[in-house]
Amino acid sequence: MTHVFDEAITVTARPDGVFSATTHPAYDNMVGPFGGITAATVVHALQQHPDVLGQPLALTINYAAPVATGTWDLHTRIVRTNRTNQHWTFTIEQDGHTVSTGSAVFGIHRDTWADTEATRPPAPEPADVAAQDFPDFVAWARNYDKRFVVGGIDDKSDDSTSTLWLRDLPQRPLDYPALASMTDAFFPRVFLRHGTFMPAGTISLTTYFHATPDDLAAQGSRHVLATARGARFGNGHFDQHGQIWGTDTLLATTTQLVYFKNPQG
């Protein structure tokens, strides 16, 4: 039986080198599909390209317009391939219009000196934290087991930090597309600051993949620990910075630019 996530990121390679994908209702968001599933589909498609080098290292996707329900096309171009890394640009086209642009870097992992300066936030075990649902109109969230340690969807706080245990639902072994999707699984930080839903959406998402294939295999289908916060809010935009941790390994970091409007009333 195919996992719903794998159904949602399915792509078909055409003879002209363009990948075709179709939106999946399980990952609908308030407007258009969940941005994380679009990012995951791009990563999955690039991994299928016959000329790809190595594994994903970085992805930036700019959401120029909402993707409409239906089929969309991913146009990719290799800008340059070096000895250990490869640079891509891409556009997502739908009905004759560009709805997203972006870039990606793939590369070969080499055995070098390593250290992690970031600190994994403290958290009780996932079994000791209650799962929390999002409202029904946020369809994509039903595909994740979400256990908030701090900063839940119903909270209001002067600190925009959320830390939560996160896992695909049903369970699914972690891979690069799933990791890309999870880096967008944080609800907009402005919701937490105001304690209410308000018009908001990601303009640009960048993800850095620190995980090696061995890290992903070691993680398996266990919960990751995800944490995010904003730095500055105002003038209709804010930034949002996040980390995705495995058991003791930093798997990915991410940053977003998000637009928002003041809540009504």
Score class of each variant (00 low, 15 high):
M182V: 05
N143E: 10
L169A: 12
K146I: 12
M198P: 02
A127E: 14
H109C: 00
A123V: 11
T84C: 05
N143Y: 07
R189Q: 10
V99Y: 04
T76S: 10
T207Y: 02
N82P: 12
A114L: 12
W72G: 00
D184V: 04
T202N: 06
L169H: 15
H194A: 05
P66M: 00
W72C: 03
F191A: 00
A131I: 11
T101R: 13
A68Y: 07
F148Q: 00
D133T: 05
G107Q: 05
D73F: 15
T89M: 10
G70T: 13
F191H: 05
R77N: 12
H109I: 08
T101E: 14
R193E: 08
A185N: 10
K146Q: 15
R172M: 06
V138K: 04
A178H: 05
D115L: 09
D158Q: 13
H75I: 09
F186W: 11
P124R: 06
R120D: 03
V129H: 06
D158S: 10
P173C: 02
T212K: 10
P177Y: 02
H210W: 11
A178M: 14
A180P: 03
T183D: 02
S204G: 07
F186T: 01
Q86K: 07
S100I: 06
D73P: 12
R172F: 06
I153K: 10
A141H: 03
P173Q: 03
D175Q: 07
D95G: 03
H97Q: 13
A130Y: 09
H87P: 01
P66L: 00
F187R: 02
A114P: 08
A211F: 07
T116R: 15
L164M: 15
L164Q: 11
W72I: 01
F187Y: 13
T89L: 12
A185I: 07
F191N: 01
I78M: 13
R142F: 14
W165S: 01
F106I: 03
P170I: 05
T76H: 10
Q171A: 10
H210I: 02
D111V: 12
M182G: 01
L74V: 10
P124G: 00
M198C: 08
I203S: 09
V129R: 04
S162W: 02
D115C: 11
S181R: 00
A185F: 02
T69F: 08
F137W: 13
V79G: 07
F134T: 05
T84D: 08
Y176M: 08
T71V: 14
A68N: 12
A131T: 15
D159K: 14
T119R: 10
A180M: 03
S204F: 05
T183L: 02
G151P: 05
A180Y: 03
W140I: 00
A141C: 15
D154A: 08
A127Y: 12
V149E: 02
P121S: 04
R80E: 05
Q94K: 12
D111W: 14
T98C: 13
V149D: 02
H194Y: 11
R189F: 01
P135A: 01
G107A: 11
V79C: 13
F209N: 01
R172V: 13
D184G: 02
D175I: 03
Y176C: 03
D133L: 11
P199W: 12
G201V: 04
W165D: 02
P170N: 04
R83V: 11
P121W: 05
P188C: 01
G201I: 05
T116V: 09
T112A: 09
G195P: 11
G151V: 01
F187W: 11
G151Y: 00
R77T: 06
M182N: 01
S162N: 13
T207M: 01
